[in-house]
Simulated assay, not measured.
Amino acid sequence: MSGKRVLVIGANRGIGLNLIKEFVKRGWTTYGTVRPQTRDDPSCDELRETGTKIFELDYTDDSTIAQAAEKYGNEPLDCLVNCGGVGPQPFAWDADGRERLLEMFNIMAAGPYLATKHFIPKLEKSSKPVVANISSEFGCIAPNERGGFLGYRMAKAALNQQTKTIAQAFKDGDSKIIFLALEPGYLATRLTGWKGEDDMEASVKGMVDIIQRAEHSDTGLFYTYAGEKLQY
């Protein structure tokens, strides 16, 4: 048993659930969050079967983030995975309205930022803590040669900037926390309409490998699940 503890936010489906399963295989103690409105969803049954301790957390509700951190307690946290998200649709650049843009930003940028803030005290108790933000190359500006999915791209760009900026804030102090952005690939999940090109098992294994071998010199970097370094 590794004796390590991981919290995956957005753990009852897709990438989050599969990350939980991979961490369990490697002997980690797992904690996962589900939104209060989905606690009775059948997908939560599969999460419970892994032995994961479940907290309710909604990235758009600050009080649930604070409550989840309180319920976690004072034990060291070795890894926080910010995984909750929404789908990239619609494609057309002018299809997003203000409400949809703010929803994407709240869930994929503001929510992870607030969760990181609340769990920093737990992470600081670990000997080698990692914050892993599940991002997307769609948030990178230079590789954008096909356009589309503007709101999603904007939100992921904000998450990427967040990862880099917070890493810089902690880089020169005494903190041991490593901040990473991870590209999981194009996976068939509910958020992608069950379309995908990459293999889920290879993706989660690759991301957990990166988390486990990360050193402080990696903080602020952006990796694909295969270990390729990406430019923000």
Rank of each mutant, 00 (worst) to 15 (best):
residue 4 K to L: 14
residue 208 V to W: 06
residue 78 D to K: 11
residue 21 K to C: 13
residue 15 I to H: 01
residue 60 T to R: 07
residue 145 E to S: 01
residue 109 A to Y: 03
residue 64 T to Y: 01
residue 232 Y to V: 12
residue 129 P to S: 14
residue 153 R to E: 01
residue 216 H to E: 08
residue 177 I to H: 00
residue 17 L to I: 06
residue 94 D to K: 08
residue 71 K to F: 12
residue 214 A to H: 02
residue 23 F to L: 11
residue 194 W to S: 14
residue 2 S to G: 13
residue 230 L to F: 06
residue 67 Q to W: 06
residue 85 G to C: 12
residue 161 Q to M: 07
residue 120 I to E: 13
residue 91 F to T: 01
residue 36 P to N: 02
residue 42 P to E: 10
residue 221 L to Y: 09
residue 184 P to W: 00
residue 141 I to E: 03
residue 4 K to S: 13
residue 37 Q to S: 15
residue 231 Q to V: 10
residue 120 I to L: 15
residue 184 P to Y: 01
residue 15 I to M: 07
residue 182 L to V: 09
residue 151 G to S: 13
residue 99 E to I: 04
residue 183 E to D: 06
residue 226 A to L: 12
residue 12 N to S: 11
residue 217 S to P: 03
residue 14 G to E: 02
residue 6 V to M: 14
residue 225 Y to N: 11
residue 93 W to G: 07
residue 172 D to P: 00
residue 171 K to V: 00
residue 174 D to T: 07
residue 186 Y to C: 01
residue 137 E to C: 01
residue 21 K to M: 10
residue 7 L to S: 12
residue 196 G to R: 09
residue 30 T to R: 08
residue 203 S to N: 05
residue 96 D to V: 10
residue 157 A to V: 09
residue 52 T to W: 15
residue 42 P to T: 15
residue 176 K to Q: 15
residue 38 T to C: 10
residue 201 E to W: 02
residue 90 P to D: 09
residue 117 K to L: 02
residue 60 T to F: 00
residue 41 D to C: 05
residue 59 Y to A: 02
residue 101 L to S: 07
residue 90 P to Y: 03
residue 45 D to M: 10
residue 17 L to N: 04
residue 228 E to G: 06
residue 51 G to I: 02
residue 223 Y to L: 09
residue 52 T to K: 09
